[in-house]
């Protein structure tokens, strides 16, 4: 046998790219099969759900027409006329109000726990928040219901009296004594209380992962604690905070019982007067109507569920795009 030449050779005969063969052990093979099976089952369930929902919603969509169903604001079970635009807008309104209240509270809380709280209190709060995030949001909803339902009415009245400059806070031109119960704002605030723990928990976790040397670098340059948070921690944690917000938004969109309790009855028209009675949400509508619905209305409720799912996906993808576009150097 000829010894291989030292150094490198120009002989191209052995210089063919190959991928070395993988020789998995029995354990590897078994585990691989388990993983593939799990993934397949999960995907099949999701696909089956989607097909089932679409199938179930066909009668109502066929009756009203798909375009009408998604662009009209009407719910008349007696004649079988359905349109969910008003409900979709109502759902987004409530969820947006919830986020406007919840995100600043949650991020402030997360920063307090991470950066300002004395260690022992911070550790305790972290544990408490993580536990609260796992508590069914209905519990907060019940509290919010009793705390907000009546006590917020004077607040709503004050807002409508003093913040007339902002269109959303104006009252409608309808005559008679304005009714401040069952408004988007009260529902949004209740939902906001429900999603604070989950947003706090996730964003705190992300912002606690900022490498220590990054923070020290900022402090060593003469940055104050606030400057460090602004220029290092928030940019680092941005995608995580947005992710936490989307998680909260998803929950807010789907909040059912608490919203139904607050609203009492559903307005199928979009209502720009958010402090006044008259608001709707897809989930609450499904909850309130489900029991007594005719087969056709049931089909319409399922179709509105499809609309809710599509809404969640759209918002989620939009948020991911925004994060991807504004995140630099990665």
């Amino acid at each position: 046998m000829v010894a291989p030449p030292v150094g490198f050779s120009d002989d191209p005969s052995n210089d063919i790219p190959i991928r070395p063969a993988d020789n998995p052990t029995v354990g590897d093979r078994i585990f691989r099969v388990i993983c593939v099976a799990s993934a397949s089952v999960a995907l099949v369930i999701i696909a089956a759900t989607a097909i089932f929902l679409l199938n179930k919603s066909r009668p109502a969509l066929a009756k009203t027409g798909v375009w009408h169903f998604f662009t009209a604001s009407v719910w008349n079970a007696a004649v079988g006329d359905f349109g969910v635009l008003g409900l979709v807008i109502g759902t987004i309104t409530i969820a947006t109000i919830a986020l406007i209240v919840a995100v600043p509270l949650a991020v402030g809380m997360a920063l307090f726990v991470n950066e300002y709280a004395p260690p022992r209190i911070g550790r305790t709060l972290t544990a408490v928040i993580d536990l609260l995030a796992a508590v069914p949001s209905l519990i907060f909803g019940m509290w919010g219901y009793f705390a907000f339902k009546n006590h917020l009415i004077p607040v709503s009245r004050w807002i409508s009296d003093h913040l007339v400059a902002i269109p959303f806070f104006r009252l409608s031109n309808a005559t008679g004594k304005p009714d401040f119960t069952g408004s988007s704002m009260i529902a949004g605030l209740v939902v906001g209380m429900m999603i604070v723990p989950i947003i706090t928990s996730v964003s705190r976790d992300v912002m606690a992962r900022v490498p220590r040397e990054q923070c020290e670098g900022a402090l060593a340059l003469g940055g104050s604690r606030w400057a460090m948070i602004r220029d290092v921690i928030l940019p680092y944690g941005k995608s995580g905070v947005v992710g936490a917000t989307m998680l909260g938004f998803g929950r807010a969109l789907g909040e059912t019982v608490a919203v139904a309790l607050v609203l009492q009855n559903i307005s199928y028209q979009a209502n720009p007067h958010i402090v006044q009675h008259g608001a709707g949400s897809i989930a609450a509508n499904i909850f309130l109507r489900f029991g007594e619905a005719s087969p056709l209305e049931l089909s319409a409720l399922v179709a509105s569920g499809v609309a809710l799912m599509a809404l969640t996906f759209t918002v989620g993808f939009a948020a991911r795009r925004v994060v991807a576009r504004t995140t630099r150097f990665s």
Partner: peptide, 28 residues
């Protein structure tokens, strides 16, 4: 000022912004 054992440029900033980071952080 201080330079650390492990290089720690700010990942969300450009090279230029990294140089100017101290001014921004301290409001100079």
């Amino acid at each position: 000022g201080m330079v650390f054992q492990k290089p720690n440029p700010f990942p969300a900033m450009s090279i230029r912004e990294n140089v100017l980071a101290g001014l921004k952080l301290s409001g100079t």
